[in-house]
Nucleic acid binder design. Structure first.
Lengths: 135, 135
DNA sequence: GCAACTGTATTATCCTTATAATACAGTTGC
DNA sequence: GCAACTGTATTATAAGGATAATACAGTTGC
């Protein structure tokens, strides 16, 4: 059983600490990270990812500010979510992605049907080598 | 009749010079920028966008390296495209966006039908205030 | 008690991006 | 000829992101 926190891939465009925040929000949106779940320590996570502990700290600090991570000094950090907050995170992330995608496709003069066809064509190919998804 | 080059919006995440390259590729993909078309001078474009001329220069240099912009000293820069190159640019841009979108949606455990429903819901809302798109 | 962990903090260094301020060489229009 | 444009280049400065190297205070397990 692989941990949630292994095998994370970073792109070299966006700041790592922001990609980390999106990673956690995605896991919350997917229902894979729940209220009360403990997240890795800054040092352990940094070692696992091959990055600097202060970069993880920066991400965790941002998540504390956004209200879904609580840190009690000297004993680790934990996800703090009620159903409303979890739904809000999923909704914001999802809507933001969909809006950006639609905007980009329309900027390229793609019509609705072509976009749906493209997604239909490539949806299943993306599943290879991943954990199963309801379909 | 508004010019192609007015009203460009930059985000504060990605480097401006890269956003500029994507902007030109998007116009090419949309068929709004054709072989032989002249692009604005570095200084004029920078003044229009409120950015530094050297940032435009950096974008144009990258486009020259990618082979779809030609610059003859002291007389401006022009789009250089054959049909193959134009198709390649559109295909790469489009496929890259679709792949990234599908990956993100699947990471959130979204199923195929929900994604299609979301796009169907928001597709037309994005069209407000934009030039018409075939639908 | 002590080693090993926890979060937190500071300092210095490096790279990339972006800007400002120039400067130079060539073309064009009047 | 000369002003106004073209692309190109250099230097200096600033900010953000990331790293390395420490350091300090508190908790936990043996």
């Amino acid at each position: 059983m692989k941990s949630l926190f292994t095998g994370i891939q970073f792109n070299d465009q966006d700041p790592i600490y922001l990609q980390l925040v999106v990673f956690f929000k995605t896991k919350i949106a997917a229902g894979l990270l729940l209220n009360g779940d403990e997240v890795p320590s800054r040092r352990a996570f940094a070692a696992l990812l091959g990055i600097n502990p202060m970069t993880v700290q920066k991400a965790y600090r941002l998540m504390e500010d956004e209200g879904f991570l609580a840190t009690s000094a000297n004993s680790g950090s934990f996800i703090t979510l009620d159903d409303v907050k979890a739904a809000q995170i999923k909704s914001e992330l999802c809507k933001g992605q969909v809006d950006a995608f639609i905007r980009t496709m329309q900027a390229m003069q793609m019509d609705f049907k072509s976009v749906i066809d493209l997604i239909s064509t490539f949806w299943d190919q993306q599943l290879e080598g991943k954990t199963n998804v309801t379909k």
